[in-house]
Design a protein around this nucleic acid. Structure first.
Lengths: 232, 232
DNA sequence: CCATATCATCTTCCATGGAAGCTGCAATGG
DNA sequence: CCATTGCAGCTTCCATGGAAGATGATATGG
């Protein structure tokens, strides 16, 4: 009865993710974990076999991944897993710098109660980062900080842009964890962003967020290039 | 030999656009021209009939348009042409402000010969704008200016982000042309951006580009809202 | 009269097969 | 020995049909 009424108005239960969704997630996961070496050429048939569907969901998932820049569909030839050069990583970081910087400035422009609430949550993540036992936990808290920063800025398009470029960079992120960059430098930089937000100073927040990401970029990109990695 | 070698490495002739491509372009065109009222719900079948293909290319084109935010695919229900609220337009402008501002700053950081060459081309478009006979021509030159600004900044991801949000805003643009905003104010603002680029001053270029777009945003968004347009 | 259940009809989702394009190799001709 | 051509085997592209979900009108029971 109630269940019938609920079924009736069920807007989009999406109980069971579609096969396209599953194929998309599985394919993306495999790419990020570098189970498919970058530059490899695959066919829909073999992916369909691997993921246990027919070729159609694979094809549609590939279209989505192509839109996100993770693969390229070569007409009549196959699916190419894109390779990222250090220059690509640099481009991606520059997008992050532009968007995330603006997001920080936007938060600093919010009415005081709102921006203080956000600042508190940002501070909590930063604290988690500081006391984290291992590198893994520290990275997670770091990611949570940056996700929150852009989710809270009030422009959903900012979030979706960052989601896209982050997924492009994900493969490199996995690799970078092994390089163990000095993430502890991030803590005071995060605090500087938080302080500017609390003070309601958009200019300083913008500059602090940009400087933070630019510092990371300038640390990471030469490192990748020096390791002679032409692509990931 | 050269021809053989070239044929060998020919990446993708793409002589004839695929049906998906055609359906994508036609569907998008129809949406932008508001031939489909926003909010309307369509079926793949009827679109297939209209565009003279089967349902498959329509479906794949719709997936692409969904990725771009122009339509939403409602599972088992149909294809919804998205409606844009003034708030959406505002969000889109804010993305433009962040990305285009950064692009201007990046150009200002280029070595002098390069940035002067770009400045010259930007100036040519601005001049075309100034002497344009009708509003139509003026808009075209304006668009060319902004396209060039972001194409020349050296980060292809900036261009692709702007392409996406611009296509989202395209429907509103068509509408806005009829409002005939005072585009002449743009000319000196463009010149300010160009001057900062020539001077190699990234900060000023950033501020000038942001101010220009922010001015347009603050002119347009209330106008749309005042017209009582809940969506386009 | 209202609430609930049923059902006809719409839709997408996904599997599959034929058509056509691309590639690399072997055969052919100089 | 090299350049060209033909071909076999791969790939995607696209059409189509069955399955299952979503919806709204209608029937049914209180």
């Amino acid at each position: 009865m109630a269940s019938a009424a609920r079924r009736r108005t069920m807007p989009a239960g999406e109980i069971r993710p579609s096969l396209v969704e599953q194929a998309y997630a599985a394919f993306k996961e495999a790419i990020v974990r570098s189970e498919f070496p970058p530059g490899i050429q695959l066919s829909a048939q073999e992916l369909a076999l691997r993921f246990g569907t027919s070729r159609t969901p694979i094809h549609e998932a590939s279209l989505r991944l192509q839109e996100e820049g993770l693969v390229r569909i070569l007409p009549k030839r196959g699916i190419l897993v894109c390779a990222l050069s250090p220059e690509d990583i640099r481009e991606i970081y520059d997008v992050i710098i532009a968007i995330e910087g603006d997001a920080a400035a936007r938060i600093a422009r919010l009415p005081e109660p709102e921006r203080l609430a956000i600042a508190e949550r940002l501070d909590a993540e930063t604290a988690r980062m500081e006391v984290a036992a291992d590198f893994e936990a520290r990275s997670l808290a770091d990611m949570a900080f940056h996700t929150l920063l852009v989710e809270a800025c009030g422009n959903s398009r900012f979030a979706s842009i960052l989601k896209t470029v982050n997924s492009q960079a994900a493969r490199a992120q996995v690799f970078m964890v092994q390089l163990r960059p000095n993430i502890e430098r991030s803590v005071p930089e995060h605090r500087a962003i938080i302080a500017a937000i609390c003070a309601g100073d958009p200019e300083t927040a913008l500059a602090a967020a940009r400087a933070h990401r630019a510092r990371v970029r300038d640390e990471i990109v030469p490192l990748l290039a020096r390791f002679g990695l032409r692509h990931f």
